[in-house]
């Protein structure tokens, strides 16, 4: 994968992709993941945050075959190949949904809402999906 025309060599910004929607039911999660993969071609400092219903995106055991959707959970495992390893899941979002703090498809850091706010404040570019 190569960066498109107009790439600015040398500039490295901190990008945070905030995922707030459930993986299925709307296309937001899938299309957000497509942006994340493209961003890897630009050699930026990329992090992902999962909060609200977005926490369901990285839960293990998703099986959308019954609704005729392709399971894109394996794509999260490919992020490591693109050196995207900073994945943050908000603890309060898990608790509010009665979900445990383990059993994810990829290694993630579970952080508090306050820690998530601090992570967001450290970014140059925050994209919310």
């Amino acid at each position: 994968m190569s960066a498109e025309d107009g790439d600015t060599p040398g500039v490295i910004k901190r990008f945070l992709f905030v995922n707030r929607k459930a993986p299925y039911g709307t296309i937001y999660a899938l299309e957000a993941l497509e942006v994340v993969l493209i961003s890897a071609a630009f050699d930026q400092d990329v992090s992902l945050a999962f909060l609200d219903d977005g926490v369901y995106q990285v839960l293990a055991g998703n099986d959308p075959s019954g609704i005729g959707m392709k399971n894109f959970s394996p794509t999260y495992r490919a992020l490591d190949d693109y050196d995207i390893t900073k994945l943050y899941v908000e603890r309060e979002s898990l608790q509010e949904r009665g979900l445990p703090e383990d059993g994810f498809v990829v290694p993630v850091s579970v952080v508090s809402r306050a820690e998530m706010a601090a992570i967001m404040s450290q970014q140059d570019v925050v994209l919310s999906f």
């Binding site: 493209i38 630009f42 570019v125 994209l127 919310s128």
Partner: peptide, 20 residues
């Protein structure tokens, strides 16, 4: 054009403002 144009907009501007 491609999604690269979005990432580039994040790199080259002082702010990227999201409406969704």
């Amino acid at each position: 054009s491609g999604l690269g144009q979005l990432v580039e907009a994040g790199i080259q501007n002082d702010r990227l403002v999201v409406f969704g």
